[in-house]
Design a protein around this nucleic acid. Structure first.
Lengths: 131, 131
DNA sequence: GGTTTGATCAACCATATGGTTGATCAAGAG
DNA sequence: CTCTTGATCAACCATATGGTTGATCAAACC
């Protein structure tokens, strides 16, 4: 384990760039060379090379060698790390909601005053308010 | 919909910072004021305020008002967007692997030459090589 | 009204990032 | 050996980012 926190930072940072996300999308369909990856974009090959270095240092891709070509391969392992991070807090929030719902349920039977069980702060927020 | 791509960029970018990830972790336990959030860190309140602006513009948190306090609330909706993005490519890679496995299976019966069905490139990579 | 408390705004600074161009390297191809 | 192809290295530039300090705002306290 090489410091998961720093690793997560590099992963999220790598995926923060739309071009790099697009490359990941492309690579999900199969390995590709640097030139193949560069084709769709209006930037220099060197820029693409840099992007790949970022993806590589984040552990999202690995590179092998085929003559003078350097095929890029998507390493899907990393997705698990992200998913785990996300799901942890997603679950935590869900649980907090259920506890709150349960409390409100109980209150509905007897009393009627507004109370927040967590902090001293308004914790009411409806789920499902998309942009 | 406000340009999902730009939104994803802002989300991933926001979570690329360890301090901000930590704040999200804290907020998963319940709402908090800026001062409460700032307490654990060795940075100025203004820096924390900036971090919160980043999280807010990414749609990860919302802020209400309680006297002179501005309670911060984690909006877990965003997690779905990330999860969806991740799972799309995760699934795609998985499917590609199954097709490759199936091919290798069939080849094992008759022939023995190495062929790559996707690109002209070596697509062989073992799954499960963690750091 | 004046002061304390909670938080933001504004200006500034150092470093990181994404892009460029030019030079270089490594492996086939002629 | 020389040339072409595929890709990286190096230096540079503009902008973004995370941090700072000082000033300001807004609500509550006295």
């Amino acid at each position: 384990m090489v410091d998961q926190e720093a690793r997560l930072s590099r992963i999220f940072s790598a995926l923060a760039d739309p071009t790099r996300r697009d490359m990941v999308a492309r690579l999900a369909a199969g390995d590709a060379t640097v030139n193949e990856l560069a084709a769709p974009y209006d930037v220099s090959l060197q820029a693409v090379s840099k992007h790949l270095k970022v993806l590589e240092s984040a552990g999202l891709v690995t590179r092998s060698r085929d003559a003078q070509r350097r095929p890029v391969h998507l390493d899907a392992e990393v997705f698990d790390l992200m998913t785990k991070w996300i799901e942890r807090y997603q679950r935590q929030v869900e649980e907090r909601f259920s506890r709150l719902d349960a409390l409100l349920e109980r209150m509905q039977d007897s009393d009627g005053s507004a109370v927040d069980p967590e902090s001293g702060i308004n914790n009411d927020t409806r789920r499902g308010a998309s942009s």
